[in-house]
Amino acid sequence: MKKTLRFVPLFACLTLLASCGGESTNTSNTGASSSQDTTVDFDTTQEITPLTRDTNSGTREAFFGHIDLEDAASDDSLLTTSASVVASNGDMISNLATDEYAIGYFSFDSITSATDEGVKVVSFEGVTPSEDTIVSGEYSLTRHFNYIVRNDFGGDSVKETIVDAFVAYMGTAEGLNIIQTNGGVVDPETINNAPTWAEISANYPGISDDHSDVTINFGGSTSVEEIARQLSASFSTLAGNFIAHHDHTGSGAAYSGTQGDDAGTLDIGFLSREFNDSEVPAENTSGVICTDAVIIGVNEANPLTNITADQCHNIYALDGTIDTWDDILG
């Protein structure tokens, strides 16, 4: 008993120590971790860590297309060796928030969560990205969000009607409102003049019948995933409560899942880039949803405010000339 008593205070100290360790990380993980380190001076001699998405990403293709690195979009070996791959926009943002010497790119529809977490938006070629500059075309790193649908439903006319109606819904005022709320860039005038769902629903007879046994498969780009989920959730209530199944693995899966090699696995695919040469959609099965932009971001502590296409090229290319922050910030 005496021996046990001897160990009890030791045990208690250990427990306190351990719980301190467990608890203290509670505050340091809500994205405020970077604020603890803003007192650290930004060391410009550090190497730049370029962050990129994987080769399936449409955002990557859009970004590299604008900085003269089209071939690197599907080939990792043309990238600089210090690059690191992240899996999604959210991953990109959390990495930028914790690593002061990183630079990366993400989609405009994640811009509010980015600025909340401590990521600084860098202007491109002197233009700050905002809805106005994107709509007007001044901000040049833009791309369209596109969709593609299955061209062969195997005779399932119910699914075909629902999918056609969904495509029309994306063009109504309500659909455009949802797209805009979730970060897509839509011209306010277009919303004002678009038809309402009530006006066009008559074109799709039987759309509001009970469809709770119908599953529609959505997939494709992860940048469009949030928009797609919200659209399908709202549209489902208007179209008989069909089940919307989302499996977003990248823009590459959109064409192959609807009309390409894996045709039939997806009913509607979304892309965050244009169709490339090997993807030729059938007539009337594809179109534009909205505009989007690619935003370049750095950590809050980074003094960089503007970057040019040429500088981006030299950061990301294998034979690029920019390696440390000194080379850019001078």
Partner: peptide, 18 residues
């Protein structure tokens, strides 16, 4: 040994508190 104990307790505390 205390490292091991600290690790065990820290895991449990972390999971439960969060």
């Amino acid at each position: 040994s205390s490292f091991t104990l600290i690790a065990l307790i820290a895991i449990i505390v972390f999971i439960f508190s969060r």
